[in-house]
Each structure stands twice: as structure tokens, then as C-alpha cells.
Amino acid sequence: MKKIAILAVSLFLVTTLCFGNALAEENLFIYSWTDYTSPEMLKKFEKETGIKVTLDTFDTNESLLAKLKAGGGGYDIVVPSHNFIPIFVDEGLLMEINAPELKGYENIMSKYKSPPWDPGNKYSIPWQTGTTSFSINTDVYKGDIDTYKIMFDPPPELQGKIAMFGSADEVIGMALIYLGFDQCNQSSDEMKKVMDLLMAQKPYVKVYNSDGILERLLSGDVALHMNWNGYALRVRNENPAIKYAYPKEGVMSWMDNLAVPKDAQNKENAIKFLEFMMQPENAGIQSNFARYANGIEGSAEFMDDELKAAPEINVPSNVNLIFSLACPEKSIKLYDKVWTKLKQ
């Protein structure tokens, strides 16, 4: 009886291992964040092209970088953020795709064509874009929410009710904006001021973490939480009083891009996917799922009304958007020093 069971299990395993991949015809392997890619959009792509899509997930740009550097892993499409594109290019990890020659390139919004992180769109096309600021519970704090002052120098009702992200570059980047300094700062004096600011803020911070933002805000554990705009929209859906701020000092922005790794096995299919993604309808479907804006002109037509009206997605025109680039070695060292000191 036991032997039969063991035999059955091993037989099952062997068959799944053998046939799991062998039966596939045309393949496309995408590497992205979880829940970030619309299943509906992928089904449409599979139906139109007959290509089978497999979606794998990673957690940070750094993991993606380390993995591609060590020889890939067999992905055809990766989704690096804009500040990582120059690094990937420098390290020779991406394939030239010459996006302007692809079908549908004209649909990319002019402000995202040939961006500073990828002149001439040689290696990537813009995909989804968002901002990083904070969500704040307006039942707890009634004043003006559009400033970082309430986060770094909180009024009594917010003291001890603040949550920051768990990653050094995002927290320090925001402090640099508040102090009016440049991103990727290489000045020891200015970074010392950043550290003093963060040290002074620390007693009022309840937690430094990027997981479970929704839970902490809704439970009332914290009243102010660093947040991404698409996530902030989900939080506001659950509690309308929790609003997303557009601080007047400036807001960090990012763009996640589609790119093809150098050693991609299915280059043609990857190109097909890029062209597919540049069609307004497909970009619209994608945004409806992820709740982030995209870089395709005319895709708004295909978005649902809630998304079109959402203040989190539609950035007010007077807001200063800051796209930070890849930082040089010296500033990385300074960031690391500030972070270690802060949390020693």
C-alpha cells in the first residue's frame, strides 16, 4: 500500500516534469511584479498570437539586476524601473530593440518618447508609471496635507502614527526632496542634514516597512504612510478619508519599462508583445487591472470611469514630478551610511 503510494507520487512527478514544458509551442516568458500584469490582457495576447505566456515574479529591481547579471534565467520580457535602465544598459544586459521602428511606437505619449534614461528608446518602451508620496488619514489630521512637513516634522496628532518604506533609497530620496537637495546627492554636508532630519523624525515613526501598507492604514495603526499612487487608490476605495498627497516640494515619479534581456530565447515573440502593448486598447486593459497609468496615448478611452477620475492617477498639473536616475557610487555609499546610522 505504501509502496503503491510512493510509486504513484513519483510517477506523477516524473510526468509533470517531463511534459510540463515539453508540450509548449511558441513561448514567451515575462518577469514582473506579482499582480502587476493584467491576466485579461495576457489572454488577449495569447489568443491573438497563439503564443503561450508564462509569468514569473520578482520583488525588487535589485533582484532583477543580480539575476540578469548572473546570466539571465531565460526571460524574454523584463520590467525594470526607469532608474535601473541605464545600469542594465551599461552592464550590457539588454537587447537593442530600436523601439521607433516597431509598429505602434507612434502611440507612445510624446513626453515619454526618448526619455533621459533611454535616449531614442533603443532598449525599452515605457509601460506603467506612478508616483511615490504618502497616504494620509484626513480624519486624524485636518490641516493641509500637501507638504512633507507633516511627515518629517509631524504635528502632535500624527506623532507616532507615521510609517515609512523599508528601503533606503526611497526614504532618503523623499528627505532630499523635502530639504530641497538634489537626488543622488554626493555632498557629505547635505547628506549629514538628511541624517539629522531622519534621526529627528525617527521617534515619531512607528514602522519602517513596505509590506502591509493597506492593513496598517485601515486598522488605524498609522495615520500617514509612504505609499505608491496605485496602491493608495486601493486604500482610498476601502476608506475614503485616506487621501493621497501631492506635496508642493515635489513628488518622486517612476516609470516601469518593458525591455528584452540580451539572451532572450524568444526574441520575435518579445517584439510581438511590445507591439501588442503599444496598442491603446491593450494598454487600457492593463491599467484597469493594475490601477496605474501608462504611457500610451489614447489608452484612457479604454479605461474605466473610476480610474479616469481618480486623483491618485491623474497628477495635478502644478505638481513637480521628479524622476531620479541611477545614482553614482559615492552617493550610494552615503545613502548606505545614513541608513546604517539611522538604524544601528
Partner: peptide, 12 residues
Amino acid sequence: LYIYGMVRMGIT
């Protein structure tokens, strides 16, 4: 991997 990749959207 699936779970930790959910950072940008939150764990459901």
C-alpha cells in the same frame, strides 16, 4: 516568490 512579488499591490 509569488507572495513577495506583491509589494506594489499589497497582499490579498
